[in-house]
Design a protein around this nucleic acid. Structure first.
Length: 121
RNA sequence: GGAGUCGGCCGGACAGUCGCUGUCCGCGUUCGCGCGGAGGGAGGAAAGUCCGGGCUCCGCAGGGCAGGGCGCCAGGUAACGCCUGGGGGGCGCGAGUCCACGGCAAGUGCCACAGAAAAUAUACCGCCUCGUUUUCCUAAGGAAAGCGCGGUAAGGGUGAAAUGGUGCGGUAAGAGCGCACCGCGCUCCCGGUAACGGGAGUGGCAGGGUAAACCCCGCCCGGAGCAAGACCAAAUAGGGGAGCUUUUGGGUAAACCAAGACGUGUGGCCCGCACGGCUCCCGGGUAGGUCGCUCGAGGCACGCGGUGACGCGUGUCCCAGAUGAAUGACUGUUCCAGACAGAACCCGGCUUACAGGCCGACUCCUUUC
RNA sequence: GCCGGUGUAGCUCAGUCGGUAGAGCAGCACAUUCGUAAUGUGCGGGUCGUAAGUUCGAUUCUUAUCACCGGCU
């Protein structure tokens, strides 16, 4: 059961353009200077994650990979608490210069805020 | 010991926990996949996309034109604008290093300003012979100044660049006018596969620069690119074909024409209005998916040939194939505290970025033996 | 990933057989007006994206590099 709680298989990702469109249409939003996090309730019984790290905001490929890994890792550890929602994380240009510790703290904040709001609605 | 040159290599290590993605084996399976185990999982530049190939589709008898590229010689290579060796020139005491290094004595163009003149030459100042006028000195004669016909390329001045350089002779003054040496052209001989080098003779010298100006000569090049291309293929609309249901009239014929019935929608219902054969198959094709997709001009070791790039032979190994896109996170130990940076069809190069470290060869200087 | 284009004054742009770079707007000063705007006259402002090379000489030619923009799903 532990593996199922912390794992990150393919069904837990947003793959198709339609999935992203679904979230962008009507989403709960939480943002700071590093990241913008969008969330919308789904009917799948688990959380799903989509990443939108723009080349325009983060020009270097190695930096984009680093940010995506940090977000996936944080999501993997917290997904059980998030419930049944689709999430899209967008990077902003200041994320390029920030270190891992800063981004992890930022993500923790966003998860908590979204859990609260999705429960209430 | 110090300073330096060249070549090659590395790009944190180890352990534990939680995750991601291919491959192989075993078991289960609702054939979608799931579980367990083993083993693999970014780079020297993966980058820039600047060259060259493979591969795929399109075009194509052959050749030429146009356009583009390359440019000392020889070799290597699948090919190259790359590499190796050699030649010539520049820089450095040296090890070495740098060079788009064919042709302007085929043609055309350009060379601002300055300068007399910027390229068939030419005479501004100057120098000199001769003629002539004036003035001066004691006559013959000479001197100075002006003007004129000429000679001259030594000197001045301009410029980035001025028609071989230096010296001696020579001359009215000068000049390859003559001579010596250097440079240049031509001829011959020798060495070298060649670029080129060396030597001898000969010509008095013909060539300003610019071809990353047009151009000439030699060689090379068809175009597009894995978002290439191939295959499977839902829903909806439309296309083609077959079969079938149905009232009346026209008609050889029930799908050719007209009217009606019937069905659907609107509406509480009727009239009315609008729309409409039904079923199956076929091909194109969108979403989506599969293949292309990694065994290759491959790595490593040894031997042989070659100065070398490289080639040949034998043995051995399988070493990323993702698709919102996989290598990470946390903890601990340790050291010199980790730079530049992330594969996307694949190779060979070039160029650019880069913390720090290791190895080898060689040069110069100083000191000691 | 692939293909193509552009960098010149504060802004928008010109600039060809290589010879010391311009226009409009903006800015400043003066004139005009009681004052402002408009108008007129004058002035300043450029490492020609960066670095090498070719040339006597480069915005222009060549190479490398940096930045920005666009197209292809």
């Amino acid at each position: 059961m532990a593996a199922a709680t912390f794992g990150f298989p393919h069904e837990h990702r947003l793959g198709k353009p339609a999935d992203f469109k679904y979230v962008f249409e009507k989403a709960e939003k939480s943002a700071d200077t590093y990241l913008t996090v969008l969330a919308r309730v789904n009917d799948r019984g688990h959380a799903r994650l989509g990443l939108a790290i723009a080349k325009k905001q983060i020009p270097r490929a190695s930096a984009r990979n680093r940010i995506k890994r940090l977000i996936r890792e944080s999501f993997r550890l917290r997904q059980a608490e998030l419930g049944s929602v689709d999430i899209v994380v967008l990077a902003r240009s200041s994320a390029r210069l920030s270190d891992g510790e800063t981004l992890r703290n930022s993500l923790e904040k966003h998860w908590k805020a979204l859990i609260k709001r999705c429960d209430s609605c």
